[in-house]
Design a protein around this nucleic acid. Sequence first.
DNA 1: TTGAAAGCGCTAACAA
DNA 2: TTGTTAGCGCTTTCAA
Lengths: 347, 347
Amino acid sequence: MERSRRARQKPATIHDVARLARVSKSTVSNVIRDVPGVNPETRERVQEAIRTLEYRPNVVARQLVQQRTTLLGIVIGDLSNPFYAEMAKFVESFAAAHGYQLMFCNTQVDENTELDGIRSLIEHRVAGLLFLAYAGDAESARQAVGEQLPIVFLTCDAGWGDVVAVDDFAAARAGTQHLIDLGHRRIAYFADTVHEARAERARQGGYALALQEAGLTPSILRWHDRPQLVEAGGSICTIQTALTAPERPTAIFAANDLHAVDILDAADQASLRVPEDLSVVGFDDIAISRIARINLTTIAQPKEALARLAVDLIVGRIGGKVQGAHQRHSLPFTLLQRRTTGPSPAP
Amino acid sequence: MERSRRARQKPATIHDVARLARVSKSTVSNVIRDVPGVNPETRERVQEAIRTLEYRPNVVARQLVQQRTTLLGIVIGDLSNPFYAEMAKFVESFAAAHGYQLMFCNTQVDENTELDGIRSLIEHRVAGLLFLAYAGDAESARQAVGEQLPIVFLTCDAGWGDVVAVDDFAAARAGTQHLIDLGHRRIAYFADTVHEARAERARQGGYALALQEAGLTPSILRWHDRPQLVEAGGSICTIQTALTAPERPTAIFAANDLHAVDILDAADQASLRVPEDLSVVGFDDIAISRIARINLTTIAQPKEALARLAVDLIVGRIGGKVQGAHQRHSLPFTLLQRRTTGPSPAP
DNA sequence: TTGAAAGCGCTAACAA
DNA sequence: TTGTTAGCGCTTTCAA
C-alpha cells in the first residue's frame, strides 16, 4: 500500500475513497463532514478506506465550492521588531482557535512589494485582512483591497476599516507628561520613519500637545542612516552629537521600544548616564525592555487583548455577526515607570 | 459602477469579464496569463472590462485546476524569539521573490496544536513545508506530513527531509572551547527545554565533547519555572542560587541568545559581574545581542544565507529541479567574541 | 440511508 | 486569433 501511494504521486481524492469503500462520493463527503445519518457500518468502511489511502480532504476544492476560505491575511510591518512578532503570535493562536489560518506578507522592503503582497492575499480570497502596521500609503492599499472583505487595523490605523489599538495620542501625551513632571524642559521625540504612518503621527501629536501645554518647544529626531546619522531639526549629524550638543535634549520619547533601545545604546557609547543625564521613554513594552540591563520606562500595550479583540472582530465580520459601520476599539495603555527616567539634570 | 459592485457582494468572475468584453472565457484567461497571440484590441477590451469590474483572478480555482499551489507552509517554534522572527522574515522575502506565499503555524502551545497546524497546512495543499524548529516529536509530525511533499528543516533537524543549518555540534564545541581557553573549569550548559529537540541535542553534545576533551565535568542547567526556578543536576533551585553557590559555574554556554540574556539578567540581579565573575556565551546573534548593554559573545548563524538556501532548495524540489536523496547543507557559523566572556576568576 | 448530478472559477487541450 | 469543452475535488441539493 505504502509503496503504491508513493508511486502514484498524487494524493488520494474523495473519489478514490468512494471506490474503495464501494459507496458514492456523497457518502464519503458525509462521513468527512460528520453529517449525521450515515449507517455506522458504512461509516466504518469509509473510514477504513480513508486510512488505507491516507486520504486528506483537499481544502482548495472545498474552498472553491463553498465560496469561502478560512484564511486570514496578515500584513506585518516588520517581523524583526519583537512587538510585531509577539502580536503576530497572539493573532495566530486566536485565529487558529477560530479555525482560521494565517497567510502573511511582510512589507518591509518597499511599497510595491507590499501592494503585490496584498493583491496576492486578495487573489487567494482571504476571508479577512489584518493590518499590523504598514509601510505604503493608504490610498493605494485601499484600492488594492477593494471593498469586499473585512479589514481590521491592529495597533495602527488608516482611516478605513475597523481599528483595534490603544489611544496612541493619549498614550504619547502621558509618556511625555511623565517627562515634563520630572522637570525636563528639552524633550525630543524620536520618530519612526518607516512604519505606522498614522499611529506614528498620533504619537507625535500627543507628544507635541503635551509640550505645547507646558510651553515647551518640540524637537523631532529620526534616523537618517542607522546606526550613525540622525536628522534633527532639518540637519544631519551623528546621534552622539545630537545627544551631547549644548542644546541637547535631557529626555527622549521614542516612537517605540526598539528606537528607545537605540537611544540607550547611543547614550552608552557617548558615556551619557541614563537616567541621570538622559531620560528615555519607549512605547510597546517588548520583552527585552523588562530585563535589568534595559529596564525601560515605556508605554505598554495590552498585546494579547488587542490581538484577541481584533480576531474576534474580524471573525465576527466574516461570519456576519458583526455588521455596520467601522468600529474603533481603544484599549487601555499603561505607563510602566522603570529605570530609564529620572529627574532632569540641573542646567 | 462602484455602487453595484458593492451591492453585488460577490467578486466578479472570469465569466463576467468575458460577457462584458464580449469574448470567451478562454480569451480572458489568455489575457490574464499573458499568453501571446491575443489581438491587441481584444486585449484592451478585456483589460477595460477587468478594470471596470475590478476583477481579480481567483487563485483558489486556479490552484484546483493546476493541481498545485504557490503556498509554502512554515512551522515556527516561537515567533517571540527574535531569531525565528528574523528567519521568518528572510524566508518570507525569498519566498515572495520566487512567487510563493507563506502560510504559517506557530507551534508554541502544545504538540496537538502543532499537529493540527501541520494537518491544516497539508490539507491546504501547500507545495512544501519548512520547519523552523518544532515542538512535537518527530514521528507524529512525520506521519501527519506523509510522504508527498518536499520538507526542509531550517536551523533544525528531525532526521527526515532536507536540512539547512549550521553544524550545531561543532559550533557548540567551539563556543565551549572558547570558554575553556579562557581558563574556565566549571562551565555549565543552559539548555532550552522547549525547542529544537535535535539541534538542541547536537549543541549539548558539542558542549559535552569539548568538556570531556578538557577533562571537565558537564553540568546542565534548564528553566524549571521561568524566571525564578532552574533545574540543575536534578534538583530545583532559584537561578540566583545556581549562579552563586560555592560550586557555581564561572561560565555558561547558553543554548540560544534569549537564554543567555536570561543569565545576564539573573547575574545582574545576583550582583555578579559579567565577565569578571561569570562568562556567558550565547547562540544565534539576535539583534539585541549587539547593543552595548548586552554585547554578548555568541555563535552567529548566517541567517540570510540559511533562509535563501532553504527557499532555493524547497522551490527546487517543488519544481523538480532538485531531486534525489535528502540533502544536508551545513553553513559556516562564526564565534563573535564580544564582552560577556573573559578569563576565569581566580578560584 | 445512499446516490446522481450540477456546479464553484479557472486552465488547457483542441477545434474552428 | 478565438471559442468550445472537459475537467480539477469537492459540497449540496434532490431523488431514489
